[in-house]
Design a protein around this nucleic acid. Structure first.
Lengths: 213, 213
DNA sequence: CCTACCGATCGGTAGG
DNA sequence: CCTACCGATCGGTAGG
């Protein structure tokens, strides 16, 4: 009756607090750039105590990665349910996907880092845990094509990957990328995201979805 | 008469060979994940010799970053000249941008890592070295808007950043991202890139650019 | 560009 | 979950 509270930070098990602290630090400084000492300090325990919960740094790394994927597996279905059917819900769906990653950018940054650090492992994990869900989106797009709402020249699979790349890239490196063009405006990343949604929609739907005929 | 050959690898100064080796390793394993010993080994010298050329690991890091930016500054003008005017040259321009990064993916991977590791520094460097060039593209898009070829709802600045995010993201993490949807096809990344170009074009141009009227 | 060397920190273990 | 400890490797220096 103690460890299943939704309240952030409070009432987490030590193991959960270690994984959360490690995720944040791995995301910010990278795996090699983070010492077990630093993670232990953030949790408020000694390094050997941390190593009691996770027998090695690599096992902790894997636990962090699994935790992120588990989070996606529990949330993606909800997002997908939201973005079914027409244009409006679609825009909402992409927007919701962005919000989902923005809610904790450390998840987006961590996955980008791990894609670079451990491409083969991440490939395998994405195939296993994410592909089933993106597969549904691909099917849905193809259905839209056969119904004439979605452009015929869309490569459904590549489209989905490309949108995901944009969303994750924007959340992970948003403010920095934006320095390519303008100074730091407060609303910069927001403008970035509207444009992302606009691009996603313009590239997917036919210009005039047959209204009645 | 010895050190200015375009031939790859051969005839480079020691300094240049160190920077190239460091760029590859920083891109692959990250800065913190790369030891000076490993860089020295790749170059074929001793660690203290490396430290004679670059007084510290951080100075080497900065030299690698500067080298990548210098490469962009020398190549971006050429790419921009190629992609002036109409639709076809535009597609060629985005394609050329992709080819540019693909020619040495270590540059794309390095910049992504540094955006995560040193956001403030990279922000400053992008503003200083890249913004002038992307600024030209932004102006060009706005000109296209006033001439009716480019959609009015395009946010030129965000658009440019979004395309850059896609290109760099695709080159840096292409094969891995793609495992979100299908198995490893040889042509996977190529399909990814066609879709990227298609998205870029569909989101930019008006559906029927007034042919004569 | 090298040999020889150093203090600090790393991941990890022993033993309770 | 702790104290005490270890070998290996780290970035960097001395001195030539």
């Amino acid at each position: 009756m103690v460890e299943t509270v939704a309240d952030p930070e409070a009432e987490l098990s030590v193991r959960e607090r270690i994984v959360a602290a490690a995720r944040r630090q791995f995301a910010e400084r990278g795996f090699a750039g983070t010492s077990l000492q630093a993670v232990a300090d953030a949790v408020g325990i000694r390094k050997p105590s941390l190593l009691y919960h996770f027998r090695s740094k690599d096992i902790l790394r894997r636990a962090v990665l699994d935790d992120v994927l588990a989070h996606w597996k529990s949330e993606l279905p909800r997002l997908l349910a939201q973005s079914r059917s027409g244009k409006d819900r679609f825009a909402g769906g992409v927007g919701a996907l962005v919000s989902f990653f923005q809610a904790d950018p450390s998840r987006a940054r961590l996955i980008v880092r791990e894609m670079l650090d451990q491409p083969e492992l991440v490939k395998q994990l994405l195939t296993e845990h994410v592909r089933p869900w993106t597969g549904l989106v691909v099917d849905y797009i193809r259905m839209g094509q056969s119904m004439g709402q979605v452009r015929d020249d869309v490569d459904a699979e590549s489209y989905v990957v490309q949108i995901a790349t944009m969303v994750i890239g924007t959340v992970a490196t948003g403010e920095v990328s934006r320095s390519m063009i303008s100074g730091d405006r407060e609303d910069g990343v927001a403008a970035q995201i509207s444009e992302l949604v606009r691009l996603a929609r313009a590239g997917l739907f036919n210009v005039r979805p047959p209204p009645g005929a």
